[in-house]
Design a protein around this nucleic acid. Structure first.
Length: 699
DNA sequence: GAGCACTGC
């Protein structure tokens, strides 16, 4: 029989019916076999591969027959449209599903896929922007399919998974899917990819959508489903060659929008707090129901909460809500309550967290939005007017339990003049990390990558510049390519600057300490600082402070935790953390991330140092990643280096008098959460890479 | 001595 015959196990037609990852492996071996000259060996391998193909075919049959029985909750809008959806999926490689919350698309789509026969030649990948969502969606679908979590339906997020090799549906964060690209270029383990919440347009989502567009031709069997809120869906459709859009209605209640601008006809202008008072008064007179007020930040929330509580609304509790809040305080918004509740929240409440039972929303119309300034080379968090899409999302937060009212503290003309959508992250961020990943996967020209919205060329250039400073890329034949060091950076799953420190520390013999610090600087600060216990918590934390360096305090805290953990039982340790104003879950995250980094350096065949590192080597390693954020003063107290770099010298400090040999402080990444002091004596040779870039710029 | 939302590997 000839290989071209459709029934031969090694024919293309047959392999197309086999389990995809096996088929792809067999194809690769067939391709290699072309070069084999020994005909006996060739025949033998062909027989072997035929057998494997047969098994891979049967695997698909087995999976098809073992699928669970599928039922749909009849009251969901998406259930009613499942035939339309099934038909669209069967007839198109890419389908866009647009629907608001409450349509049931997230839970029902993978079931529809399974029912039409997908999930058999490979798993159904289903991505979520957040870990928590990935896990809880997995549980919900597993429950509906009456299968324990991790069997038919599993999940994989950073630090946790529950999945079997014969699972059908795999919930994951979009970041995990991206990370898997490194070892599975064509996503062969999947026959279907569902990208949920694509309208959020995170860096990960934009990158995945570009990547998928590229592999559709190589994987004609792969089905892709993009789901999004009903905003900007045409853009997705256009990106994927006019893929069909199916709209699914949501199940929400009508929301009345009232415009109450602060700026009125000249003399009656209100400031924001007065506007909020007036809006709260107005809503209180509407009747019972919880109120959600959007704010720009922690401080603003605290101030507003204080002023609102002074107004003594009857039977009303005021709750703050922001990400840095301790878990205990955050969870208060989920507790049942009597009377009225006013929740003052940052943007967490817009996407990440759904505050239950909200009937009224007050939207001042602004938010802090992270933006990379190409001019100053730093990431900033300016307060900006939010987009129409974002305002509508906020408004929708009060239509989930009944008809709602949303008061906007601006006028309708203002709303209509705003941009329709928030700029996607890719247009607002430093691209070093994305570029590094793209180079590592071998995607070639960043400028030619099919992004939905291509990033600003100046941002791309700056991304390369940062990578160059970190010595991760170099110019070769007029092209910027990854250096061996850069290849290592790409394998260390933290910000490239932090990864750079890890690489340097390996050479200097302080890997262990720097892993602790790099992990610590990547997570949310585990130190809690509750409003009413500021002093006590500061004192508890001060025990770990190091006079010369904030980085060393991380090490001190780490050691302390390790000792406590050794002595105490698990529950005692949890309690101890609480008593010492440390967030247990974040401590765990720190330890998990450390373990992950340790694994990564283990894979690189690097060894941890057994003896404690000296201050000098430690700081030298840390500075390698800080270069682009650090400047220094010469003996005349003149700045060397780009003045607009993040750069701090404490002028009053005695160390400032010591001249250019001391770096005093540096802000590592975008937010003050990572502000850290390090007073390190800098040896001239450490300065070379720094001086090369910075001094040249200063000239 | 800064004072600034939220995610993700």
């Amino acid at each position: 029989m000839h290989l071209n015959s459709d029934t031969h196990p090694l024919s293309n037609a047959f392999l197309n019916l086999c389990y995809q990852s096996d088929a792809s492996r067999i194809r690769r071996r067939l391709f290699k076999l072309n070069k084999e000259v020994d005909s006996d060996k060739k025949t033998q391998t062909l027989a072997q591969l035929s057998e494997q193909a047969q098994a891979a075919f049967e695997k698909v049959e087995l999976r098809r027959n073992a699928r669970p029985k599928i039922h749909y909750p009849e009251n969901l809008p998406v259930s009613l449209m499942r035939d339309d959806i099934a038909r669209a999926i069967a007839g198109n490689q890419v389908v866009i599903i647009a629907g608001e919350t409450g349509s049931g698309k997230t839970t029902q789509l993978p079931k529809i896929c399974l029912e039409v026969g997908l999930g058999c030649r490979g798993m159904i990948a289903h991505t979520q922007p957040r870990r928590l969502a990935a896990r809880s969606v997995a549980s919900r679908i597993a429950e509906e399919l009456q299968s324990p979590l991790g069997e038919v339906v599993g999940f994989k997020v950073r630090f946790a998974d529950a999945l079997k090799s014969d699972s059908y549906i795999k919930l994951m964060t979009d970041g995990i899917l991206l990370a898997e690209l490194t070892s599975d270029r064509n996503l062969d383990q999947y026959d279907t990819i569902i990208i949920d919440e694509a309208h959020e347009r995170s860096l990960n989502i934009d990158f995945i959508l570009g990547y998928l567009k590229q592999i559709l031709k190589k994987r004609p069997d792969l089905k892709v489903i993009i789901t999004s809120a009903t905003i900007d869906v045409e853009r997705f459709s256009k990106h994927f060659n006019n893929a069909p859009i199916i709209e699914v209605s949501g199940r929400t209640f009508p929301v009345e929008t009232r415009y109450r601008p602060l700026v009125q006809d000249s003399d009656a202008d209100l400031d924001q707090i007065e506007g909020i008072f007036a809006a709260v008064d107005e809503l209180v007179s509407e009747g019972l129901g919880d109120i959600l007020i959007f704010m720009n930040g922690e401080r603003e929330i605290r101030d507003t909460a204080e002023q609102l509580s002074r107004r003594n609304y009857r039977d009303t509790e005021i709750l703050p809500l922001y990400a840095r809040l301790s878990y205990g305080e955050q969870s208060k918004v989920f507790n049942s309550h009597r009377g009225r509740r006013i929740v003052l929240a940052t943007n967490v409440a817009e996407t990440s967290l759904t505050v239950p039972g909200i009937r009224y929303v007050i939207d001042p119309g602004t938010a802090r939005i992270s933006r990379y300034s190409y001019r100053t080379k730093v990431q900033r968090l300016p307060i900006e007017p939010i987009s129409q899409a974002s305002a509508n999302q906020r408004q929708g937060r009060c239509g989930r339990v009944g008809p709602g009212i949303c008061i906007r503290l601006y006028d309708e003309a203002d709303f209509n003049n705003r941009p329709a959508f928030t700029d996607p992250e890719i247009l607002r961020t430093n691209l070093a990390s994305v570029i590094l990943q793209m180079l590592a996967i071998g995607l070639g020209d960043i400028a030619g990558f099919p992004f939905i919205e291509p990033p600003d060329p100046r941002h791309i250039r700056d991304g390369f510049l940062l990578l160059e400073e970190l010595q991760a890329v170099e110019s070769k034949h007029n092209k910027l390519v990854l250096t061996p060091l850069g290849r290592n950076l790409a394998q260390i799953p933290v910000d490239p600057r932090l990864a750079r420190m890890v690489v340097e520390s390996q050479q200097l013999g302080c890997l262990n300490e720097v892993l602790v610090i790099a992990a610590g600087l990547s997570i949310q600060d585990p130190r809690e600082r509750p409003m009413e216990k500021k002093q006590a918590s500061d004192e508890a934390h001060r025990r770990f402070a190091d006079p010369s360096s904030d980085f060393v305090s991380w090490i001190n805290l780490w050691q302390h935790l390790k000792e406590q953990q050794k002595e105490l039982s698990a529950s005692q340790f949890r309690k101890k953390c609480r008593d010492e104003y440390l967030a247990y879950l974040r401590v765990r995250e720190w330890q998990d991330l450390y373990a992950q980094l340790k694994q990564a350096v283990h894979d690189l065949k690097w060894r941890l140092n057994d003896t404690p590192a000296s201050y000098d080597t430690l700081h030298r390693a840390l500075l390698s990643g800080l270069l682009s954020h650090v400047g220094f003063k010469d003996n005349n107290n003149e700045y060397l280096g780009a003045r607009n770099r993040k750069f701090f010298v404490f002028p009053g400090s005695p160390l400032a008098k010591k001249g250019p040999k001391w770096i005093m402080a540096a802000e590592l990444t975008e937010t003050s959460r990572l502000f850290a002091r390090c007073c390190a004596k800098i040896e001239p040779e450490w300065l070379e890479p720094l001086a090369a870039h910075l001094i040249k710029k200063a000239m």
